[in-house]
Design a protein around this nucleic acid. Sequence first.
DNA 1: CAACCATATTCCGATATGGGAATACGTCAA
DNA 2: TTGACGTATTCCCATATCGGAATATGGTTG
Lengths: 121, 121
Amino acid sequence: MVGRVARAATTTDAFNAVAEPRRRQILDVLAAGERSVTDLVAALDLAQPQVSKHLRVLHEVGLVAVREDGRRRLYRLEGRGLKPIHDWVAGFARHWEDRFGALDAVLEELTGETDGNDHEG
Amino acid sequence: MVGRVARAATTTDAFNAVAEPRRRQILDVLAAGERSVTDLVAALDLAQPQVSKHLRVLHEVGLVAVREDGRRRLYRLEGRGLKPIHDWVAGFARHWEDRFGALDAVLEELTGETDGNDHEG
DNA sequence: CAACCATATTCCGATATGGGAATACGTCAA
DNA sequence: TTGACGTATTCCCATATCGGAATATGGTTG
């Protein structure tokens, strides 16, 4: 029962939090502005408890912030938390954008990057 | 019982595939060019079976492509698969980029966002 | 063919995840 | 205070994920 980790905890980082479709939906809704749990429940067609649970995860990972308003809790998007993902993915943009694709091809030709293993010439 | 889904399968989409740190590492390495499984094992300090397993997932999701070279399999990045993630996250960029932040603040002022019901003009 | 190298697959165990249902708060209205 | 509402937490369970070890599969070399 020591270091045995079966799977990275969902609550670990934004990458994991966002891997769950429902949570992405929640963020999509919140992108339009503050929403109460009930609002989200209605918008997502998901049971209230599950919404609260997902919000918990999103909150722990810093993707949303809460504000109390009477007996309601208004959640709002904390977009900054998505930046790590954006930054990481952006690093690969050249790999799917055509204009870069051509350039990459040339660079690989020039640097022999394609392998680093020197296979088959 | 059929519909009982405990958790979205990792093999479902790029979001899930990339939620796993190791798999991100693999993609990072592949970003530099084609690599054999052995190369990856060395680069990642991870056991060969696990690397193969992760590659399987990445392959099924379309994030990597394989090429056979004798008894080796050379994997290469299939960057395009990351585009969905990029696109989704990019939609939130305005939420963390300062220059947009200011604009958003103004818009919220104007639209009475704080009310929580009327939003996004 | 045999020994060997490269990679994939299978079996195992520990874990935690997500939905559903029930329930526990905390707040507001009468 | 009582009761209704809004939200969070807990319990249960089926599932699947990950790493580790062992093994299977397949090509290569001698």
